[in-house]
Design a protein around this nucleic acid. Structure first.
Length: 199
DNA sequence: GGTTCGATCCTCT
DNA sequence: GAGGATCGAACCT
């Protein structure tokens, strides 16, 4: 059965609305015959040029250009010399915004994840932005991918229900340098999930 | 339980 | 030339 990918209209809204709505959705990575997927349990919003924690705060550059484009595209970047982070653009053209996917609950392709991560425990596979990209084989080859049309990387709604009471909003991780922006409660995670990067 | 630190390279200054 | 939207190992208490 063909899966129904989340459409552009899902992502082309206020970034925090999209971030909350992404919790519980399924991130799918298809690579050859493998279908690797996980339920999104934790995300962070990076919104506007005034958000000092956002790469877009430094202006429009070749790297950040994608954040200034339309919603529904992958922004994958390389960090700390060894990891990748996976973001989805949101909002509208000319307004830089994206959502960092920080943690997943493994659903399918678990053997593939364990091989990619060189670890067996489910909780060690995708609980962190660098871990989940490694587990799903997400690298900069997928940067700029249109996730509303891609056959390799996309989101689906499998009917899993999340209510506002299931969601915790708190400060983002690793952005202490960002002055007043560091205090913004723009990290969202599923309260009862065992698959969150940090409590 | 917690904190510190090294790995390692792309991006921007 | 500096620093980072990270991770895991090592070393504390």
């Amino acid at each position: 059965m063909k899966e129904k990918k989340l459409p552009r209209s899902f992502f082309a809204r206020d970034t925090h609305v999209v971030a909350r709505a992404m919790l519980g959705k399924v991130l799918v990575r298809r690579c050859g015959r493998a279908r690797i997927s996980g339920r999104i349990t934790e995300v962070e919003s990076y919104v506007g040029a005034d958000d000092v924690a956002s790469h877009a705060a430094r202006g429009r550059t070749p790297r950040t250009e994608i954040m200034f484009g339309p919603a529904g595209y992958a922004y994958i970047y390389f960090i700390y010399g060894m990891y990748y982070c996976c973001n989805i653009t949101t909002a509208r053209r000319e307004f830089p915004a994206a959502i960092l996917i920080r943690s997943l609950e493994p659903l399918t392709g678990i053997l593939h994840m364990q091989r990619a991560r060189q670890r067996d425990a489910l909780r060690d596979l995708t609980t962190g932005p660098g871990k989940l990209t490694q587990a799903l084989g997400i690298t900069t080859t997928l940067n700029h991918e249109d996730i509303t049309r891609s056959t390799q990387l996309y989101l689906v709604d499998d009917g899993y229900r999340v209510t506002p009471r299931d969601i915790i909003a708190t400060t983002r991780i690793g952005v202490a340098y960002a002055g007043e922006s560091a205090a913004l409660p723009w990290r969202y995670y599923l309260k009862d999930s065992a698959y969150v990067s940090r409590r």
